[in-house]
Design a protein around this nucleic acid. Structure first.
Lengths: 140, 140
DNA sequence: TTGCGTGCAAAGGTTTTGCATGGCA
DNA sequence: TGCCATGCAAAACCTTTGCACGCAA
């Protein structure tokens, strides 16, 4: 879980600031690059990927693959939630991320461990599906 | 859902035969190519993708994206398994994929739908964690 | 004969890596 | 000073597409 020692660099700060400003929404590496370009700046693609990797292993961001062929999505998550028992449901219709803290679901973790010997990794696991709004509209 | 009219070609038959022989396991496009090479044959990559696409829309195979960076996995489903309730657990230690058909877990789907209005998408959802073997060894 | 299937090569897009340079502690 | 971070370009990878030819019906 712990990363190597890490510096507080300008790029890291800028990236975190942007991600926080987009909290609740997901961004791609391309979005990030576009954001820097709009500011008249430029940033190396590799830098973005490497910083996002760090943040991922520190639990600062979540990573999703919404559409398997297109780019991965990242989202800032307020580190408080996701180190705990917390399910993440990602709507494949609208992209909305739903955090579920629910006693019923917590039992699933116990069940998996006891009956199937499987220790669930919460921060890494995402449940994909349709939220109530998108489900009603018949999005598939 | 219905595909265009489709021919019964040699390639299609060979691919179906191989996929059936691997039923219960996941194969990648590379696995398929390797299988043909092992027989001393060779097959175009595009052909594999195109045939798998057909089979996908006919419901003969399922497609998974296990690890967002690596290749997609395909699996022959006799229409019975994974059109249905089936959880996939991926061990982040050894990479093993576990199919779980379990009444207890099936309730989760119902709970999510009724209590949270979330319609779970099984083929797309993967539970990450540690299998019993890796959990014992203290892999992280 | 008609139209889909196939193979090859090339293109497209995303992510990773090598390497030299720059910056944090 | 030591080590990590950055940028650039190139590479690696998976998947799709264009095109000419082959094959099923």
């Amino acid at each position: 879980m712990k990363d190597k020692h890490q510096y507080n660099t300008r790029r890291r700060a800028e990236l975190l600031e942007y991600l926080k400003s987009m909290q609740g929404r997901h961004v791609t590496v391309n979005d990030i690059r576009a954001h820097f370009l709009a500011k008249g700046e430029s940033i190396g693609t590799a830098t973005i990927y490497r910083q996002l990797d760090h943040m991922l292993s520190q639990g600062l961001v979540q990573k999703y693959t919404l559409d398997e062929t297109s780019a991965a999505c990242f989202e800032y998550v307020d580190g408080e939630c996701c180190h705990d028992v917390c399910f993440h449901c990602k709507c494949v219709g609208c992209g909305q991320l739903i955090h579920l803290h629910c006693g019923e679901l917590e039992k699933v973790q116990g069940h998996l461990a006891e009956e199937h010997g499987f220790r669930l990794d919460f921060p890494r696991t995402i449940l994909y599906g349709l939220c109530s709004a998108c489900g009603r509209e018949g999005v598939r």
